[in-house]
Write a protein that binds this DNA or RNA. Structure first.
Lengths: 250, 250
DNA sequence: CGCATGATTGAGTTCATTCAAATGGTGTGG
DNA sequence: CCACACCATTTGAATGAACTCAATCATGCG
């Protein structure tokens, strides 16, 4: 299915840089997108693919972009997970979003990126020149409308994260995160109910606004409650619905 | 300037209901909008005004809408302040946004409002039937593009709130809130540096994710540091730039 | 097999919460 | 005009959740 991209990853590693670029690659012409908002037709995807680059980013490497940097592209996650982060003056880092396949990212303010973006696992991304995309959208009102709906969807998603941060304790926040992970087939086996946690304790901590140690303790808490079972540090058996109930999020 | 709306408030109070409606009122044809994203031309405002209602909502009354309720309108704040709130299963309430004049609100998911909205002070709002607005936007790509930009702006605003909640302690969160208030001339006198806090301790607490008592204590903290001076519980003298520096937010 | 990295555990501390009580301001009715 | 009642704000004290720093334990890689 995505074999083509595996080749790209290899290429990226070969040339030693963290980010490799190829121009003019088509959107993967399947329609397996999550119900995450932007559901384009095949034709629309093809049209869009005419002016996007495909890039590969390794997890360990430098950020995809850094807050304050000049913003001339918008990114789309094809494979992998990207974390949007913001660093405040005191040096404290806060994750503002986790971008899964199907998500767009690269918000700008006054032509500069508002956040940094880092691949938390190896990724393949599509990259759109923002000017071209804007012109295209104005010439295709119905597609633009889908982007508007997607943006509204993203507001809601960010608000949801805000609710999670403001109203739940760490164990519940972790529960929500784990359930969210279970929504991604790449990491969750519906049959065995086994989840492979895709990101490190530290990245989870960033995401749910706590420290890596506290994440570990919260995992203990959930395990003691019988909501999860730890096989290895990254393999968990999950009771999805009990976890969701415990989180007390709607 | 907004005298016309003062009459409306009176009307609302007279008929005893909390929300009064009048159809077909024009957008106030000034161009004093904040740099909050959607900056329409006079012509565009006039076009939009052709299908909006004007409603008045009192601070003490029932919510403007409730989460889960059928969503067929989008709202625009003309005057006043509205708080978007979400209640989770445990009953805990979390504010997701404070809407000031110039802001849109009324996000829906599957045709239902995702949050509740309550006027925290008396408000006048414009109300747009969502279907008509959507059709209109598709027929006016450039206006739709402004709405898209506005939505992107709102994502950023929500992310900013997320950063505030995740990375700052209560005193700093309060500092940010106070500085934000100072951005609104209705409540802040630039000459005397006097701010009239427009909303209650409890609503502030909701907004910055803490309790009313803790808000009071945080005010004490800021006063001891010499960043603000309390004249009455609602009148503060503010050292804007010092406060902003203290908050350590960018 | 040993090192490096990440995960886990422990102990002490800090920050914010909760519950209870006191104070202050506002508006109403006498 | 005053007194009272009501509501919001403020203060106090005890509790608890999560953080930090340090040490120990796995896991994977050379």
């Amino acid at each position: 299915m995505h074999i083509w991209f595996d080749m790209k990853l290899t290429a990226a590693q070969l040339d030693g840089s963290n980010m490799s670029v190829r121009a003019q690659h088509p959107w993967p012409l399947e329609d397996d997108e999550e119900a995450s908002g932007l559901d384009l037709t095949l034709d629309e995807k093809t049209e869009l693919s005419h002016f996007c680059d495909v890039i590969s980013v390794g997890a360990k490497g430098p950020p995809i972009f850094t807050q304050g940097q000049h913003a001339d592209h918008v990114f789309y996650v094809n494979e992998g997970i990207v974390q949007g982060r913001h660093t405040i003056r005191s040096g404290v880092r806060q994750s503002v979003a986790l971008y899964w396949p199907g998500d767009f990212f690269g918000l700008a303010r006054d032509g500069m990126f508002f956040n940094s973006a880092e691949a938390v696992i190896d990724c393949t991304l599509y990259r759109y020149p923002i000017r071209k995309l804007e012109k295209f959208l104005i010439s295709r009102p119905r597609i633009q409308h889908k982007f508007l709906m997607k943006a509204v969807h993203d507001i809601r998603k960010t608000q949801r994260q805000l609710i999670i941060m403001g109203a739940l304790d760490v164990a519940r926040r972790l529960a929500v995160f784990l359930v969210d992970c279970c929504g991604h087939r790449e990491y969750f086996d519906t049959g065995t109910q086994h989840l492979t946690i895709p990101i490190s304790r530290h990245d989870i901590a960033d995401h749910i606004g706590t420290s890596a140690e506290t994440v570990t303790r919260a995992i203990n808490t959930l395990e003691k409650k019988g909501l999860i079972r730890r096989e290895t540090p990254w393999k968990l058996e999950i009771k999805t619905s009990e976890l969701l109930a415990f989180s007390s999020l709607d």
